[in-house]
């Protein structure tokens, strides 16, 4: 008699990348179309998220309808510039560079107590000011590049990197962005480098977050699906690690929402009066 053991079913973060790429390409095309845009603009940092977003935009619209922006500060790593140019060249996209140093340093000079953390946020918001202005100049819709892991961790500048109206990567964990990036042909140097927000010299994402993306994403997927801690621990994750991930998620729900409005009426927007964002009779 043959004995056959069924494999244990586990949550998997590995996706069908060609299918995902096709889906996100159509998503970009349609979301731009009803908003009246034929072009997209992407602020490329030299990192994998913006490179993947740029690659998707080129698939959706063609390289001539995509504008890349590189928005360095004098403290930005030289590697960021090198990689931003490499990504734009790889996908055949025109890249405009705007140095945000004078904008940021102008305010910094007036603000002697500015901490590195506050200055980092200032850079992110300065970049959004430029991105949205250039959006008007090019009549190109700004694309967001934030991934699901950083959104869940609140690891972004509020009304900064989360500001663009259309984001193809926001439901993909960081490790999934790596998978998609490889499929789309994002240069290996960009996919494999240590992730960093590059707002403070020497900074890395995983240093800031205190957990590796490869581990965080598995914990997040199980936590969001409602698995109890004991189940996640049995997969080989430490209780402290799981708690750190859950705390980050639960300290930042406000950051993934619009500002809180006091409700007084039965026509309060978004509470009683509910219309989808694409509702346009």
């Amino acid at each position: 008699m043959r004995l056959l053991y069924a494999p244990r079913i586990q949550e998997s973060l590995e996706l069908n990348w060609p299918l995902v790429a096709d889906f996100l390409t159509r998503f970009l095309r349609e979301e731009l179309s009803w908003r009246g845009y034929e072009k997209a603009i992407v602020a490329v940092s030299g990192g994998v998220d913006s490179a993947t977003t740029l690659a998707l935009a080129v698939r959706a619209l063609g390289a001539s309808r995509v504008q890349a922006l590189f928005l360095p500060h004098r403290d930005s790593s030289p590697l960021s510039r090198e990689h931003a140019h490499l990504v734009a060249e790889t996908f055949g996209v025109d890249l405009e560079e705007v140095d945000i140093t004078p904008m940021v340093e102008g305010y910094a000079a007036m603000t002697p107590d500015l901490t590195p953390h506050r200055k980092g946020n200032l850079m992110a918001r300065a970049r959004m000011m430029v991105l949205f202005d250039k959006s008007q100049a090019y009549h190109a819709l700004p694309l967001g590049t934030g991934n699901k892991t950083e959104r869940l961790f609140g690891y972004f500048t509020w009304h900064g990197d989360d500001a663009p109206p259309v984001n193809p990567l926001g439901d993909l964990y960081k490790t999934q962005v790596w998978g998609l990036a490889r499929y789309l042909g994002v240069p290996q140097a960009v996919v494999e480098k240590v992730p960093t927000a590059d707002l403070i010299p020497g900074q890395t994402d995983e240093g800031d977050l205190g957990v590796r993306y490869l581990r965080a994403d598995v914990i997040l997927e199980h936590y969001l699906k409602g698995y109890p801690d004991a189940y996640i621990e049995a997969l080989g994750y430490a209780p402290e690690e799981i708690q750190r991930v859950k705390e980050r998620v639960n300290r930042t729900h406000w950051k993934r929402a619009l500002p809180t409005v006091a409700l007084l009426s039965s026509t309060a927007l978004g509470e009683f009066y509910l219309r989808p964002l694409d509702y346009r009779p």
Binding site: Y273, L274, R275, P276, D278, Y279, P281
Partner: peptide, 12 residues
Amino acid sequence: TGYFLQGGVREL
């Protein structure tokens, strides 16, 4: 009309 209308059902 499309599927997701929320309260717009009443209008359409």
